[in-house]
């Protein structure tokens, strides 16, 4: 199902370039007209603490004390726009679609609010409007409306230090590899999203090991929907086998007698 055509877009997020200015976070709220919630400082500047239905992207401030000198990383989160999205496959009503550009988008009109997409997403991205009685699932849209308009996503547009490179996914993958090759030792040897969950449209480079930055590095390289499809795909065969098998067993076990007391009743009738 992964449609990796030449239209497929991607974003290379080079975390080594992020200065934590949070312009992207505001730009996203601004473009998508999102509200805010009440926050507090809890000894760290990450705010809101998690993505939520009003926050599609957020910078996490991650501080590591390496003795002599701290390492301070700023990590941008948003939907990864998987090439074969778990959310899309999980949704019972097909509320998610994947555009030719690779954006994974949501249709409110279809959604029933079962939240399976939230549980299924390997990156815990879809968020729910808990306070609403007619709730949406919300998440980064890849600014598809902007892309359709020939613009680049809002968060990318405002970023002062070009943390994000928007382009054809193939090209940005090449660029990621080039940067790794050009600066040996600068990055950890891992392009996050190249393989995770079967490949994502947004991929990351980092100087700090990904698992230390809150990335889940246990996500298999597999296209996750295959895992359920392996089961679902065999349903017709299973149904066939079961029907035939059960009929045969029933026929065998009920041989002779006309199998239940309904028939015994009729037998009785006959006897009468």
């Amino acid at each position: 199902m992964a449609t990796n055509n030449e239209k497929a877009k991607g974003v290379l997020v080079d975390l080594t370039r992020c200065i934590g200015c949070r312009g992207c976070q505001v730009a996203c709220k601004s473009w998508n007209e999102r509200k805010t919630g009440k926050t507090t400082i809890e000894g760290n500047f990450t705010n809101p603490k998690q993505l939520n239905s009003d926050t599609f992207t957020r910078i996490a401030f991650i501080e590591q004390d390496n003795g002599a000198q701290p390492v301070w990383s700023f990590v941008k989160d948003q939907c990864m726009h998987c090439q074969d999205p778990a959310c899309l496959s999980a949704c019972p009503v097909g509320a998610f679609t994947r555009t030719p550009e690779g954006a994974v988008n949501y249709t409110f009109e279809k959604c029933i609010g079962c939240r399976y997409c939230m549980v299924a997403c390997p990156f815990n991205i879809p968020k729910y409007e808990w306070e609403s009685t007619n709730p949406w699932i919300r998440k980064c849209t890849f600014c598809s409306d902007r892309i359709a308009d020939g613009k680049i996503p809002a968060c990318i547009k405002v970023c002062p230090t070009n943390v994000m490179l928007f382009g054809n996914r193939e090209d940005i993958m090449k660029e990621a590899e080039k940067r790794m090759k050009d600066s040996p030792g600068k990055y950890v040897n891992h392009i996050y999203g190249k393989e995770e969950a079967g490949g994502t449209s947004w991929v990351y480079l980092s100087a700090v090991p990904f698992d230390q930055l809150g990335f889940n590095t246990k996500i298999p390289a597999q296209k996750l929907p295959d895992l359920t499809w392996n089961m679902l795909g065999t349903i017709p065969a299973k149904v066939g086998a079961l029907v035939v098998g059960l009929s045969l067993i029933a026929a065998f076990r009920n041989r002779g007698a006309n199998n239940d007391d309904d028939s015994s009743e009729s037998k009785q009738g006959k006897e009468k």
Partner: peptide
């Protein structure tokens, strides 16, 4: 500006 206040809500 709520978007900004949300990120830096109080004196530290």
């Amino acid at each position: 500006t709520p978007w900004l206040l949300e990120m830096q809500p109080q004196s530290f």
